[in-house]
Amino acid sequence: MSKRVGLAAVLIGLLLLTAGQVLAASSWKPDQRQLFDIQLTTPFNLVRPVGLIELDLFDTSPEQIKTLKAKGARTACYINAGAWESWRPDADAYPKKLIGRAFSGWPNERWVDIRERDALGRILDKRLELCQRKGFDAVDFDNVDGYANQTGFPLNAKDQIAYNRWLADEARRYGLAVALRNSFELVPELVQDFDFLVAESCFSKNACEPLKAFREADKPVFVVEYTNIRRKMDRFCQDARELDVQLIFKTQSLNGKLHARCP
């Protein structure tokens, strides 16, 4: 065997090994029976038993991920893919032309132009690499429904579907399972592109019907409602059982406090 042929064989072997590692890393998918929690602000509660917990990409340390994994928990990193956040360490990486109107209710966030795929890609690529390096198993991209809001850009549903599918593809390049966040009207178009769904306040908004598509595809749905009013919680839990989705009740700040979990 010549040196050239031998080198080629080694390179091919390394490529196959790498591909196998990525496939192994991305083969995990969440299960509807895993107890879900989401915590994005301190104080965290990482002692409470969970099967899958979503945590902020930047504010969670690799050591915390290791501790959770040692307990058998899976982890998802939170990434705001549709808005610029002024306090993030990579905030200066966003070109000014990408930053649009303020996000209603969140004064330090502004929508971004999701059509600028190259510029956003460079930023999100680094975030996904960090997510993978810290040891997360999955990613949840937030604010992926800009087309339905006043962003300052002429976005439409077609733009949003293309962007969301691109996000899912990018996540899988890093071996991460990927969640669709809200975007209820686009669920029929995107259910095949995502591994699970995280929905906020859909019962209080009477907007949970589209979630059926994920359950019919045997994909998990985790719903978060922001209330601790008992009569509402009881009614929403009944609705969640009928839809076969998991429902938890949290504070709006998404810290470590858990009001309740539907039985």
Score class of each variant (00 low, 15 high):
T151C: 00
D145R: 15
N80F: 02
L190H: 10
L55D: 11
A9V: 13
L167Y: 13
D31A: 11
G82F: 01
D159G: 15
G82K: 09
L128W: 12
N206L: 02
V224D: 00
F36S: 04
D56Y: 06
W84N: 09
G152S: 15
N228I: 05
F184H: 10
T60C: 10
E129N: 13
F36W: 07
L155V: 14
V223D: 04
Y78A: 00
C262G: 07
R173L: 14
T75I: 08
Y174V: 14
I114N: 05
L15R: 07
R122Y: 04
S2V: 01
R215H: 04
A119C: 00
L55Y: 05
R127M: 15
F36N: 03
D37S: 13
D125A: 13
D234N: 09
Q150P: 11
Q39A: 02
C131A: 14
P263D: 08
R127D: 14
R215N: 03
P220D: 00
V224K: 00
R181C: 12
T60D: 03
Q21M: 12
A177F: 14
R215V: 09
F153D: 09
A168F: 10
N45H: 09
Q252R: 02
L98N: 01
V198D: 06
E242V: 13
G100R: 01
Q160G: 10
D90H: 05
V198K: 10
G135P: 06
R173T: 14
F36V: 05
V245E: 10
K29N: 09
R173S: 10
A119F: 01
L98I: 13
T67V: 09
F184K: 04
S104E: 07
D92A: 12
L197N: 03
S183G: 03
V144A: 11
L186G: 02
K205F: 06
T227W: 09
Q39F: 02
L247I: 15
Q192V: 04
K3T: 14
Q150W: 11
A199R: 05
F136N: 11
I99T: 01
K212S: 07
S201Y: 04
D140W: 04
A168S: 15
A199E: 04
Y174D: 14
G51P: 07
G256T: 01
D195M: 11
E129A: 15
A83G: 01
N164R: 15
L186R: 05
T41L: 07
K69S: 04
L46Q: 07
